[in-house]
Amino acid sequence: MEIDVTAENFNAEVLESPVPVLVDFWAEWCMPCKMIEPVLAELASDLEGDAVIARVNVDTAGDLPGRYEIVSIPALLLFKGGEVVDRHVGAAPKELLLELVKKHLG
């Protein structure tokens, strides 16, 4: 599943999620962010039921980017049990992101 997350629903959708959540911190003006959009959509489909892909627009997310020390985008943070367990900065192929999530499943 792929969802858009805001400062208002971040706790409920990400920190309290029963499954791992890969959060994509992105912006409308960011070309690498646009390049990985289809990759993340595929990932969401492949991981359906096992993990969630969430997108956070850094321009409208309040203090979330600062809270998680986002300085470059796209920044992908993997949350499990309310904690950041892994991260990747920059565009990446689907295989790399799939491995990043899979090693934290179960």
Rank of each mutant, 00 (worst) to 15 (best):
L22Q: 03
N9S: 14
A54W: 01
E37L: 11
V56Y: 03
D4C: 11
A12T: 07
L100N: 08
A27P: 07
A54K: 00
E13R: 11
I70A: 09
L98T: 00
W29S: 09
K80Y: 04
V5S: 01
K80W: 09
D63A: 15
L43G: 00
C30D: 11
A7W: 06
F25S: 02
M31A: 14
A7Y: 09
V71T: 10
K34M: 10
D63T: 15
K103W: 01
D63Q: 12
A54V: 01
V14T: 15
I73N: 06
V71N: 10
K103H: 05
T60P: 03
V39Y: 01
G62L: 02
L15H: 11
K103I: 03
E13P: 01
E28S: 12
H88S: 08
V101Q: 00
L47E: 09
E2G: 10
L47F: 14
L47K: 04
G49A: 10
R55F: 04
L98S: 05
A12I: 07
L64P: 10
G81Q: 04
A27F: 08
P38A: 08
V21F: 06
N9Q: 15
M31E: 14
A92W: 06
V14Y: 15
M1I: 15
K34R: 15
V101S: 02
N9L: 12
V21I: 13
H88T: 13
I70C: 10
P74M: 09
W26K: 08
M1F: 14
E28D: 13
L64R: 08
L64C: 13
D4V: 12
L78I: 04
K103L: 02
A51I: 01
P18N: 12
L78T: 05
A91G: 10
V14L: 14
L78F: 02
A44D: 12
K80Q: 13
A41F: 10
K94G: 03
P74A: 12
L105Y: 00
K103C: 01
A54L: 03
E83P: 10
D4Q: 14
D24G: 06
G66S: 15
M35Q: 07
P32A: 08
E16A: 09
R67D: 05
N57E: 11
M35G: 05
A61K: 03
E16W: 06
V52R: 10
V85D: 01
H104V: 03
P38T: 08
K102Q: 13
A51C: 02
A51P: 00
D46I: 00
